[in-house]
């Protein structure tokens, strides 16, 4: 660790995790998270109002834990990075409110960063992240990105037309009577099932002509799959445990098959032989296994950050902030506005 590398505080509050991360250059010093998730479990989904309230309560206690973990003082920091979008407006405002208060008090620069770009930047803590194809899959996003320069050259090759992959997992888990959040529970159930038992549809994998292919080759759609699963369950109302596991495994296989096939194809199309998978769904065991197989066959280097760096966290925001400092980018003004619908192509 070089002493002259910038010490950066990262703040992430775009959804239900209050994430505070600290990096010095490309070295991770702390990654503390508080989640309001137990409260959301009651509602079966994230409630923005509940999340915003929880962020206020968790913000400074989480910051204190991170400072202790990294063994640094607030006055040591060179810059603050904070997620300004995309995400839920109320929660985002809590993060930028706290971040600008700290930056004003410390008199240090602030960088408002893109949450999606941060998911990719976290890889810089372990690898040289560019250029890469990135498959971003979580409850909020499903997209394939071509990343030439994390600060100013991210292109979206495709995204989902309807549900995010993680959302589809949660909904199917709900039909199967699994608790919220459904993803991890479904992953576990699927391990007991036969993934070839039911041939569920693969969305957007067949194209009428080259025009349609060009338009949708790297896009996703999970709504057809979702209703196919719902219909199947309606037709088979008395599921045995075995059948339930088969539904979970076959559904999961349909999602993971499409995700990995398209990511590998994107790599072939762009000539970038590196694939990064990030976002909460990257923790899915079948996605990891199948991506590993297919990347090896195609001669592609596969990178999947540690699970705690894949889900929403502050370290990824700090990492992107440090890359911005490293690249000599101008900081933002204190008058930092949140942007709930920020597109990935603007990295800050």
């Amino acid at each position: 660790m070089k002493r002259n590398e910038p010490l950066v505080l990262g703040i992430e509050t775009s959804c239900d995790e209050t994430g505070i991360g600290i990096v010095r250059g490309r070295t991770l010093l702390a990654n503390e998270i508080a989640s309001s998730f137990a409260e959301h479990a009651r509602y079966g989904g994230v409630v923005p109002e509940v999340a915003a309230r929880a962020h206020v309560e968790a913000f400074y206690p989480t910051l204190d834990r991170a400072l202790m973990q990294a063994n640094v003082k607030l006055s040591d920091f060179d810059a603050i990075a904070v997620t300004r979008g995309p995400g839920l407006a109320g929660p985002l405002l809590v993060g930028t409110g706290g971040a600008t208060g700290l930056a004003a008090g410390l008199g240090i620069p602030i960088y408002g960063v893109n949450h999606l770009a941060a998911h990719i930047a976290v890889d810089a803590l372990e690898n040289e992240p560019e250029p890469t194809i990135a498959l971003l899959v979580s409850g909020g996003h499903s997209s394939i990105l071509e990343v030439r320069d994390i600060n100013n050259d991210i292109r979206e090759l495709g995204a989902t037309f309807d549900d995010a992959a993680g959302e589809a997992f949660d909904k199917i888990a709900r039909i199967l009577g699994l608790p919220f959040p459904g993803g991890p529970h479904l992953d576990r159930l699927a391990r007991e099932g036969d993934r070839e038992a039911i041939d569920f549809p693969r969305g957007l994998t067949l194209f009428a002509d080259e025009n349609e292919r060009a338009e949708k080759e790297f896009s996703f759609s999970f709504s057809g799959l979702k209703s196919a699963v719902a219909r199947w369950i309606e037709k088979n109302p008395e599921l045995t445990d075995r059948e339930r596991a088969n539904v979970a495994a076959s559904f999961q296989e349909a999602v993971v098959d499409v995700l990995t096939a398209k990511a590998i194809a994107a790599s072939a199309r762009t000539g970038i032989d590196r694939l990064l998978i990030a976002g909460g769904v990257a923790a899915n065991s079948r996605l990891r296994a199948l991506a590993g197989e297919r990347a090896a066959t195609a001669g592609i280097t596969l990178a999947i950050p540690a699970p705690e760096l894949c889900t929403d966290n502050g370290a990824m925001v700090a990492a992107l902030g440090a890359l911005a400092v490293e690249a000599g980018l101008a900081p933002d003004r204190l008058a930092l506005d949140v942007e709930p619908g920020l597109p990935v192509t603007s990295s800050n």
Binding site: G90, V94, G97, G98, T100, G101, A104, G105
Partner: peptide, 13 residues
């Protein structure tokens, strides 16, 4: 919330 968390951040800093 924005006002309070900002004030707390400034004071803490």
């Amino acid at each position: 919330r924005v006002g309070i968390i900002f004030a707390q951040g400034f004071a803490k800093a």
